[in-house]
């Protein structure tokens, strides 16, 4: 184990969640139309960064952000630098396009291995685009370390272990994990900081490291479409088959109408 605490945060650029309803599918070409939709950092990844930075502030150490994505994802690396990470790395390569969660986790694991030893890898529990929540446990498997998903609170931390709470349906679990580990966080864990103006200005002076698959020893056949066991064979917009009867009138008329409909539905 190295002297300093080494914390890695995986971040991803995603379509701005406020615009997700504007995403449509071209019914002919079956491509996803996202023109005019801004790209931002996945919201939960900000929580992951925040938690990493807080630990660094408490115990010292180094925080490195890694993003895998197209060249434009440099933007989220800048954002991470503005929040205060020591280093940001963009893993970008054409052969990575079309990677499913397994291939993505493999590529990220190779980038992390390239960095040397680490104590904690933080991830947002899921992203707003695919929202599979699969990458963190799969990444942990490639790194051969334990993982905990849905972490809502870190109760204690030392160089060897973390004690955390993870949310489950109607309750929570308390866990102890030996480091190194992959920790996937939820929104409850913290309130991410906003970068200061001076930090934003300074982040442009820092260099973002750019890696391709050959820099990290990734087998190109294990990533991209070829390296992904899953295939998307069709995409479509969910269809809505509803009666769509709309009523406009006085309050009393509306109330009568609703009661009539509840009656028809067999409720009253």
């Amino acid at each position: 184990m190295t002297e300093e605490l080494q914390i890695i945060v995986c971040i991803k650029q995603v379509p701005d969640p406020h615009y997700l309803s504007k995403i449509t599918i071209d019914p002919v070409t079956k491509t996803i139309r996202r023109e005019g939709i801004p790209a931002v950092m996945n919201p939960l990844d900000r929580n992951a960064l925040e938690e990493a930075l807080r630990i660094k502030e408490q115990l010292g150490g180094r925080v490195v952000a890694i993003s895998m994505g197209p060249p434009q994802a440099e933007r989220v690396c800048r954002d991470a630098l503005a929040m205060g990470v020591d280093e940001a790395i963009l893993l970008s390569d054409r052969v990575l396009a079309g990677s499913d969660t397994l291939a993505t986790a493999y590529a990220l694991s190779m980038a992390i291995k390239k960095l040397g030893s680490f104590d904690i890898v933080f991830c947002g529990n899921e992203t707003v685009d695919g929202s599979t929540a699969q990458v963190p446990p799969q990444l942990a498997e490639f790194l051969k370390v334990p993982h905990i998903t849905r972490v809502r609170k870190i109760l204690s931390i030392n160089r060897n272990e973390l004690i955390v709470e993870r949310t489950i349906e109607y309750g929570y679990m308390k866990l102890r994990v030996k480091l190194p580990a992959v920790i996937a966080v939820t929104k409850e864990i913290n309130e991410p900081r906003l970068p200061t103006v001076s930090a934003i200005l300074k982040c442009y002076r820092k260099e973002i490291k750019k890696w391709t698959v050959s820099d990290i020893g990734v087998n190109p056949r294990q990533v991209g479409l070829e390296g992904s066991p899953t295939r998307v064979i069709d995409v479509f917009s969910p269809e809505v088959k509803r009666k769509r009867k709309i009523f406009e009138g006085t309050t009393d008329e509306a109330v009568e109408w609703i009661i009539e409909k509840l009656h028809e539905a067999g409720i009253i």
Binding site: L102, T132, A133, Q134, V135, P137, H147, T149, I168, S228
Partner: peptide, 23 residues
């Protein structure tokens, strides 16, 4: 696709090096 299932399934799929779809 529960909090436990979603914790387990991805790890098992990665161990088996097979595909997994979510939710």
């Amino acid at each position: 696709a529960t909090s436990i299932g979603m914790d387990l399934a991805p790890r098992v799929a990665a161990k088996l090096q097979t595909g997994l779809s979510a939710h």
